[in-house]
Design a protein around this nucleic acid. Sequence first.
DNA 1: CCGTGCGCTGAGAGCCCGCTGAGAACGCTG
DNA 2: CAGCGTTCTCAGCGGGCTCTCAGCGCACGG
Lengths: 224, 224
Amino acid sequence: MRVLVVEDERRMAAALQRGLQAEGFAVDLAHDGEQGLHEARHGDYDVVVLDIMLPRLSGYNVCKQLRAEENWVPILMLSAKDGEYDMADGLDLGADDYLTKPFSYVVLVARLRALLRRDSGRRPAVLAAGDLSLDPARRRVRRGERDVELTPREFALLEYLLRRRDEVVSKSEILEHVWDTFDTDPNVVEVYVGYLRRKIDAPFGRNALQTVRGAGYRLAGDGG
Amino acid sequence: MRVLVVEDERRMAAALQRGLQAEGFAVDLAHDGEQGLHEARHGDYDVVVLDIMLPRLSGYNVCKQLRAEENWVPILMLSAKDGEYDMADGLDLGADDYLTKPFSYVVLVARLRALLRRDSGRRPAVLAAGDLSLDPARRRVRRGERDVELTPREFALLEYLLRRRDEVVSKSEILEHVWDTFDTDPNVVEVYVGYLRRKIDAPFGRNALQTVRGAGYRLAGDGG
DNA sequence: CCGTGCGCTGAGAGCCCGCTGAGAACGCTG
DNA sequence: CAGCGTTCTCAGCGGGCTCTCAGCGCACGG
């Protein structure tokens, strides 16, 4: 999962980066509002952590601007507790959650995961393709009436493919979003696609997870 | 997807070309600002990667000129980080995104894809000629209501011909844009034209892909 | 009518892509 | 420490894809 942290104070930013990386996130940093706005627009992040007090452009305005552009990436706002800013304003502007400094990593990570799970509630809670369904919140996968057991990695892969169902997704895109790396041997994707097929397709005589030779994979929207 | 890379430094340009081709883009190169401007005007590209420091005409001016002509092709600017130029200026001039050298190659690809996704609303997403259609994003080709399976090379060839439908396209042009070489035996084009005809024309009793003896091929705009 | 040259096609060689089984490394639990 | 589940690497293989080549048909010009 890709996280953008917009925070001008270097030590705070570095600490957040280390902490979140330890939790398995891929973290990029922006050090002022303009850069943050730019990265959020173009960087394809799954969630944004946004400080309010920023040089050049405040977190408020970054958030406001993004929402004005119909960019609904989940945003978690951070503020000092000196009360100069009111967090309620942030929520009004379209932020999805907020935290007041100082906060603990544990809480931050928990909030982030919650945001990712519900994805701001703007998308359907359950991802589906035909009779294949995945519930991110309950971490549950079903094919028809039967539950399917997946490992964490298999689950993340299926979730990503379902979010982009009917599209052809390249192995490098998969590596970037599911493994949070890009210089890994793409063979690992092939291996996990194989695992998934053995669990969601083969036992049911289906073929949802299709190979597009020379391009990547496609999850058929009708469930195969 | 067609990408124009405007970059004077040969090694950089060659590396970008190879890398982007591996990701499935069709890449053309321009080596100075004037050539880049000319290609961008006439080349029908989906996105332009534009270095700022260029001989004869700077990337700034290429961008400014294109926008002045109401040409809204998505532009991603590249700059050295020596700070001589401020990227914000580039955005003011109408660029859609920027990256600072050195950048990771994967980030570049991700940004390009994001640009293409965002922009896909403006231009027709699918290329068509009569009841023959090709969707670059979903990597899908249809003749009427029937899906047609193509190999990567066949797909690239059909995409190129569709973009230039009703024009007579020479074999050397095809070699240059689809095979990215020019000293190859043109017979390979004949072979692949043959493959395509067997998949998109023969089974349907159609004749979209026409031979213009002594000149090249033409894809009939009405689908044959 | 024939000759020349262009384009078409079937056959086949080689290569590369993707799939898979085996197993090593790692962490967690009892 | 043993046992288990998960992740990932590696090597081998099978087959699809690409491209070459040679032979043939056909258009066009003499």
